[in-house]
Structures are given as C-alpha cells and as structure tokens.
Amino acid sequence: MNNSQFPTARKSGLVVQDVPDEVLIFDLESNKAHCLNLTAATVWKSCDGKTSVPEIASILEKQSGKNVSDDIVWLAIDQLNENSLLEGKTSSKFSGQSRREVIKKIGLASVIAVPVVASLVAPKNAMANVSCVCFSSDDCGFPGFETCTSRNCCNMSGFCAAEVGGGPCANPCTPGATPFCP
C-alpha cells in the first residue's frame, strides 16, 4: 500500500520522454499520453517512496528559488494519482473541493506555476487519422472502418466524405442507407 506522505511514482508500463521544461509520459496500459509541466514533473520525479511531501516542496523551492507550500505538491499528487501515475492510491487532501476551487486558492497564493498534467487518449487504430476509403455505407460500421466517424458517410465514389461538395456532410452514416453527400 502506498504511503501518501511518501508517494511513489509508477514506473512500469510507462514510456517517459524528457522534453524542455516538461515530461511526456505514455501509459501503455491505458493508452493515454500525459504532459507534465515542470512543477508536476518535478513532483513526479521526486516520488521515490522515501521523500516526504514537505521534502518534495523543498525540492521545488530549490528549483524555483521561491517559497512553495505543501499544497502545491498535494495538488500535483492528486493529478498524478487520478492519472494512475503513482503506485497505489493516495487519498486526496482536497476531497470535497473541486479542482477549480483548489487551483484558485493555491494558484493565487503560489509564486510558481501550479502543477498541470494534460492528458489525451491516443487513437488505437492508425486509420483514425487517415482518409477513410469505403465501398458502401455499411463500411462505416465495418471492422477496419470504425474510424469513419458518424459525420462521414460513404459517397458514391468510394470515399467516406465529410466535405465533398465544399461543406460538411450533414447526412449521418446510416448502414444500409443509400450513401449520399451533397
């Protein structure tokens, strides 16, 4: 069980890439990518299971040359926790408060950037972002064509067409229906 005063960063199943002033983490298990700003990245890297929250705040102070409250560290821990970037689960210090409220409270008092963990789910299918090719309107729901979004329908010429004719296709893709895009 994780001791929340001595949080431990998760290492397994992650691909980590240091970029200037940020850290990118790709979670191979959840298929999510995360971008940690410098504050969040410093907290995450300091979570070795031996360093306490106040000690992590000190590390941030040394890095920034400014006073840093424990709340900043806790805010980072909350976000890292929510994104499964820590071992085990830590209970939130801010339970019952919305993040907006917490950020407002801490952010106003903070002289360093509040920790931010931005996340996105990477599309599993490489076809998601390439042109859809189809042979019938059924293809939109056919394995391999599921990336044709509902806005796209198969035009008479064999392409899932959202903008054929110069504008978005207003007709949803209806399997079995006559494909038509204006």
Binding site: Q17, V19, P20, D21, E22, V23, L24, F26, A33, C35, L36, N37, A118, L120, A122, P123, A126, A128, N129
Partner: peptide
C-alpha cells in the same frame, strides 16, 4: 505551444 504540448497534439497523428 511548448514542445511537450506540440508532441501531445501530434501523438494522434503519429502512425
């Protein structure tokens, strides 16, 4: 955008 943000935005397009 920062490099990190740019890479995040590019991930869905990275085959």
């Amino acid at each position: 955008m920062t490099v990190g943000q740019g890479i995040m935005e590019t991930i869905p397009h990275t085959i």
